[in-house]
Design a protein around this nucleic acid. Structure first.
Lengths: 257, 257
DNA sequence: ACAAAAGTGTTATCCTTACACCCATGT
DNA sequence: ACATGGGTGTAAGGATAACACTTTTGT
């Protein structure tokens, strides 16, 4: 029994332990080279990409399933993980695309094929990950994983494009209430890196001077030594999160939340 | 065949058309006597209350199911209807409570009993309704419907208390982005009624003068003639929503959304 | 000397907050 | 006359936005 067949046998055994018709899709965000990126899987033989997802065990909390799926896929826990919307349109999974995908599976795995072609209601979770620490693994059905610039997405399967826009909108609103960045940036970072992160999320440019003042006023940053870089300009300060103050701010919230 | 039996037969036929394990619960809010109220159902013979809910047909969009359930239960469409969270904890429906409920059902309807006792993941929708126009009907399993002060809730079944707090929190945040009130107030209303509505949602008192200025600055109200009331004070203006401006503001959003 | 990016400062404007003041009305 | 609730005004403080000025650094 080769590896693929063994994997399939395992999957087929799992099917009965999963809740039918209910899935989880994760929008995993990372920040690298001043770009906001999302983790995508490329399907085997089908020229389409999709979000990493999974299913819920019959005796498992939905939130725990999201954590588990992320661990399985990424090899690490995400600091920020939050459900943002449930997508329940009857026709959300295009029939043509379903045929293409299940066509890849031969008869020996027809149970998996049937499982995959049933109607699914999916719940979207958004997660932040440190790209350097993450270790994404493609699964049996996917050929590779990649971090893709969220503003230059390839053709996505089903309604996954739609799910990503929902996720982006979700964190845009939360940005007024929660100081993101802790789980997306390296331990030490410059103010302009933080600004670039905010700009990629909001999709617009911000004033450098005002951004700095607004952030520092939050009182959740430590100013570290200056970064010595070989560029022809003044060296920026490095910052890190002041954990205690950060937790306090999260608790009481920036706005009303 | 009496009415109850007939109803049950119908329900049992419906069961096969529904998606198993997936339900919808609606937090329907209304505003009456300067109090924010939520629509609750009282279970027959069990001294507990619950949110009105329902199931999704196998060929039906989830959002459409929410609309349908509200129409069936309330006899009218709600202007504002929005999904806010999906509750998927394995143990969210207490087993003791489930026994109490399914114990009410005799063998003749055991299929319904089985249906009800399976694990459910439920998606919460929040709706606003004009209490005077609404016409809520109890269903077979419930003895009565009532509008209950949201800040003085009775004992609720399962995690419904938790679902309501989530809903309240959801609209508290949205209050910064969406001018509510249109679907909760009468066509003409006073500024102090609107303020009471905001206060019930936010759970805190607001300054009368500042509230008025903030609201009027939005430019979405018509000032109508004064209301002549028999009280020992100055007559307040009546306001109505300026539909055109209201729609425009909704579109562009108050804050960032 | 110069460009480039960083840190800081200035100003006008707007919004929020906390009140104060006067007005209309029935008792 | 007075209490009650309604409409409007004002002044202080904070937040925002636009932009200017200075500093550091490598070429």
């Amino acid at each position: 029994m080769n590896e693929a067949t063994h994997f399939l046998k395992t999957i087929e055994n799992e099917i009965e332990k999963w809740i039918p018709g209910q899935s989880i899709d994760c929008v995993v965000l990372g920040f690298e080279e001043n770009t906001l990126k999302v983790l995508l899987l490329k399907w085997k033989q089908v020229n389409r990409w999709s979000l990493p997802g999974g299913f819920i065990y019959k005796d498992e909390n939905m939130d725990s399933a999201a954590v588990r799926i992320l661990e399985e896929r990424m090899g690490l826990k995400s600091i920020f993980l939050s459900q943002f919307h449930t997508f329940g349109d009857f026709g959300r999974r295009d029939k043509e695309e379903l045929k293409e995908i299940s066509g890849q599976l031969d008869n020996s795995i027809s149970r998996l094929g049937k499982w995959l072609t049933q109607r699914f209601i999916t719940t979207g979770y958004i997660a932040f990950a440190d790209i350097r620490k993450a270790n994404p693994k493609p699964d049996f059905l996917s050929e590779k994983c990649e971090w893709v610039d969220i503003h230059q997405l390839p053709v996505l399967i089903f309604d996954h494009q739609h799910i990503i826009s929902y996720a982006l909108n979700f964190i845009r609103i939360r940005l007024n209430y929660v100081p993101f960045g802790k789980s997306l940036l390296q331990q030490k970072f410059t103010m302009s890196e933080l600004q670039k992160l905010y700009e990629s999320i909001l999709g617009k440019n911000l004033d450098r001077a005002n951004f700095q003042k607004k952030m520092l006023k939050l009182g959740i940053f430590n100013r570290e030594e200056k970064l010595l870089l070989g560029t022809a300009n003044k060296a920026p300060y490095l910052y890190s999160f002041h954990n205690e103050n950060y937790e306090m701010l999260i608790k009481k919230g920036i706005g009303y939340l």
